[in-house]
């Protein structure tokens, strides 16, 4: 165990000792970099994420959060009352509809039903007879 830790320490020491030393700065290279910086047009503050977009996103997130909370905490309005329908009895039909028109419509419905019944009977007879013969 001790041997391992000794070798690890020796390795660390060897790594630290073998680090190449720093040379002095190259003025030509520095000048080139500075010239490039001077030649580059300044970035518009609108395009700097740290100055514009992040605060804007934070404000938008806060607004969305507040809106959500407001929607959740909004007091619920009572449901609108359904208007009551007037209760109508059979006796009130006479008041709602003229008697003559009522009789005529019922008579025509009865005539229609009788015709339909006659047609249905004729069709049934015809089919049953066709099965038999």
């Amino acid at each position: 165990m001790r041997k391992k830790s000794n070798s690890a320490t020796a390795l660390e020491a060897a790594l630290r000792q073998a680090v190449p030393s720093l040379r002095s700065a190259d003025p030509a290279r520095v000048s080139k970099a500075c010239a490039r910086i001077a030649a580059t047009p300044p970035v518009s503050p609108l395009h700097l994420p740290q100055t514009f977009i992040k605060p804007l996103l934070r404000v938008a997130a806060c607004c969305a959060l507040l809106l959500g909370i407001a929607v959740l905490l909004r007091p619920r309005q009572p449901a609108e009352t359904v208007p009551n329908l007037p209760s109508v009895t059979l006796n009130d039909f006479t008041a709602l509809m003229p008697k003559q028109a009522f009789e005529n419509s019922l008579a025509s419905e009865a005539a229609n039903l009788a015709t339909d019944l006659a047609d249905l009977t004729a069709a049934l007879n015809e089919r049953s007879l066709s099965i038999l013969f």
């Binding site: 190449p20 720093l22 040379r23 700065a25 190259d26 290279r29 520095v30 970099a33 500075c34 300044p42």
Partner: peptide, 24 residues
């Protein structure tokens, strides 16, 4: 604040360090 001359000092100090960093 946009002082490009002040950056020259930073660039000079960083140059050997970055050279070694990139080469390694």
């Amino acid at each position: 604040t946009g002082d490009a001359n002040a950056f020259r000092v930073v660039a000079e100090a960083l140059e050997p360090r970055l050279e070694r960093f990139f080469s390694q």
